[in-house]
Design a protein around this nucleic acid. Structure first.
Length: 463
RNA sequence: GUGGAUGUAGCUCAGUUGGUUAGAGUAUCGGUUUGUGGUACCGAGGGUCGCCGGUUCGAGCCCGGUCUUCCACCCCA
């Protein structure tokens, strides 16, 4: 006998968990539709070359690649061996060994989809997509190797109205779920402007990644890291106003306005942020915060960057992330398609809600069925099967205990499954056609013929 | 990929400086007179102590390796 197990970083979801997860899915879907997004799905696996190069060097390493099938039947084993040897020496992709991979996110497959289906789509195209993605990360708190993303993207529109709408939608979802959140926003153009101003335009990624750690490792260590990355001490010194930037959104914007006064792209980023903050401040329940340390490693972001964190609980990582990408489809041959989107991390949302005990008020214990018939004998069983058909036609969920087990056992089954009503049928009921339905909690009983029973349940469900 | 912790019955955990046939609670199954459950009592089954190796007369306990899960770093939803 072998011990059963599942791959590292994956999980089974039992009934209670599914009820809770579905509650989150349903809530998110409701708002996706309310805001006018239409649903699509794409395959679990993509061609490897669709995915590589879109997520940064780190991201490429985290792809779950699928080994080609039937390697033993290959006619070119010498080449295979050679490629395998090379793969052992350094990170490498080669069609002969692997040409497919599990999707890493939903955005890149979406870009691929848009290009392939461009003639049947109406732009701006608003799609939502809820599917699992896979990352070969080391599992940790809030980090799984298989998890669901819930994406909403608008592609084919440059308008910042889209960002405003996405922020409104995130706020709606989180206030419906009851999670207190902070929506952090930033803009790649500001980061580009900073790199430009300090004369290190080629080091945008290094600079942003280092700045991102400011609150984690402190200014000194950030400066040390920047030095290690080859940024000149003079440039680092110039960054001082950025490191020292504090205060509210308006104060931070002012700091940036003077810092980026000579950078066209930087000024553009400031204007965009300014617009978002002004458009959104009124009716949101979440706090909106300009956070210039917000970088996001994904290669494809070019404008707005958005991230949501829960204000309560112990999970420090983000529960939603997103941003604008000006040219993701360009790689696949469709230029001039700017898009912006967000992704809800439902597995982390689930963890936060569990920790904060937020499901208690949202979901009651759900019984599998309303009514259980005890099974006491062959004749009774046959009779009950007939009754079940009529009850279900009337919309009443009911079942029969499949075995003719001891009554005590059948009662315990109902109790454990929290089935609210029991009906016992024996020879007396068979003859009279009068049945007794018992409420397990109140122990009250209702007696009558089938129509009376149906009537009884109809009234209950109307309450 | 780097560092730290963890692993004993289905589940939650005891297990004394290494010393007989490894325990408890809970869950499961059966019973306490076969037409009305929850509490109570009695009984039963269930563990190659994560896996491999080493030290020892003797290892759940000590040592090495390996895997799992969890936590931090990196990065991310």
């Amino acid at each position: 006998m072998q011990k059963p197990s599942i791959p590292k970083g994956t999980r089974d979801f039992s009934s209670i968990e599914m009820q809770r997860r579905n509650y989150i899915f349903d809530t998110i879907k409701k708002y996706f539709r309310l805001y006018g997004f239409e649903q699509i799905e794409t395959p679990a696996m993509e061609n490897l070359n669709t995915l590589t190069g879109k997520y940064g060097e780190e991201g490429d390493q985290l792809l779950f690649k699928i080994l080609n099938s039937r390697l033993h039947e290959s006619k070119n084993k010498e080449q295979l061996q050679n490629e395998f040897k090379l793969s052992l020496e350094h990170a490498r992709n080669t069609d002969i060994l692997t040409e497919r991979a599990l999707r890493y996110d939903l955005t890149v497959p979406f870009a691929r989809y848009v290009v392939m289906h461009q003639h049947e789509l109406t732009f701006p195209f608003k799609r939502f997509q809820i599917q699992p993605v896979w990352r070969a990360d080391k599992p940790q708190k809030g980090r799984y190797r298989e998890f669901f993303q819930c994406d909403a993207d608008i592609i084919g529109s440059n308008s910042l109205v889209n960002e405003v709408e996405l922020i409104n939608m995130m706020d709606d979802v989180y206030s419906a779920l009851g999670i207190p959140t902070t929506i952090k926003i930033n803009n790649r153009k500001i980061l580009s402007g900073i790199a430009e101003v300090i004369n290190e335009p080629g080091k945008i990624v290094d600079i942003t990644v280092a700045i991102d750690k400011l609150d984690k490792i402190g200014r000194e260590n950030v400066e040390k890291e920047l030095l290690e990355k080859g940024i000149t001490p003079a440039a680092i010194q110039q960054l001082a106003p950025i490191f020292e930037s504090t205060g509210n959104n308006e104060a931070k914007l002012n700091t940036l306005r003077s810092f980026l006064s000579n950078s066209e792209i930087g000024k553009q980023g400031i204007e965009e942020i300014d617009f978002l903050l002004k458009s959104n401040t009124s009716n949101l329940t979440s706090q909106t915060e300009l956070d210039i340390t917000l970088a996001r490693g994904l290669n494809y972001y070019t404008g707005s960057i958005i991230e949501v964190k829960a204000n309560a609980g112990t999970l420090s990582s983000s529960i939603t992330g997103g941003g604008r990408y000006d040219d993701l489809t360009g790689i696949f041959g469709l230029k001039g398609m700017s898009g912006v989107g967000i992704s809800f991390g439902i597995d982390r949302i689930f963890d936060v809600m569990n920790e904060l005990d937020l499901f208690k008020d949202k979901l009651k214990d759900q019984a599998t069925v309303q009514l259980l018939f005890l099974n006491l004998g062959d004749a009774e069983q046959a009779h009950i099967l007939g009754l079940l058909g009529q009850l279900r036609k009337a919309g009443i969920s009911a079942e029969i205990y499949p075995d003719q087990a001891k009554e005590k056992k059948q009662f315990e089954y109902a109790q454990k499954k929290k089935i609210p009503y029991i009906c016992t049928i024996g020879s007396e009921e068979l003859n009279s056609g009068q049945y007794t339905v018992k409420n397990m909690e109140s122990r009250q009983q209702h007696k009558g013929d089938l129509n009376s029973i149906i009537e009884y349940f109809s009234q209950r469900s109307a309450d």
